[in-house]
């Protein structure tokens, strides 16, 4: 999925995000371009959102798999 990391520019909030804040969104391409053109947001980078580092599976989930084939 194509997402963007955006910086809210100017003095107005964008999609509920305050000026100066950064957010991750999946914007319609035309809406994104319009917002960039009028200076509402800046696309910092294209990203693929994913899990954070600190993740653990439920106890026994992999063991159960092995035992259940």
């Amino acid at each position: 999925m194509t997402h963007g990391l955006y910086l809210v520019c100017g003095t107005r909030a964008y999609r509920g995000h305050q000026p100066g804040t950064v957010f991750v969104g999946r914007l319609d391409p035309l809406a994104e371009q319009r917002a960039i053109d009028r200076g509402s947001i800046e696309l910092l980078e294209r990203i693929t959102p994913t899990l954070p580092e600190l993740v653990s599976l439920p106890a026994g989930w992999i063991t159960d798999k092995e035992s259940n084939g």
């Binding site: 991750v24 899990l51 954070p52 600190l54 993740v55 653990s56 599976l57 439920p58 106890a59 989930w61």
Partner: peptide, 22 residues
């Protein structure tokens, strides 16, 4: 015995996405 994901509480939707993805 549940799984866990450590994620800040800034966006609730991101937390749901994390859980669904795992």
């Amino acid at each position: 015995g549940f799984g866990t994901i450590e994620r800040d509480n800034r966006f609730l939707s991101r937390r749901f996405n994390d859980g669904i993805q795992l």
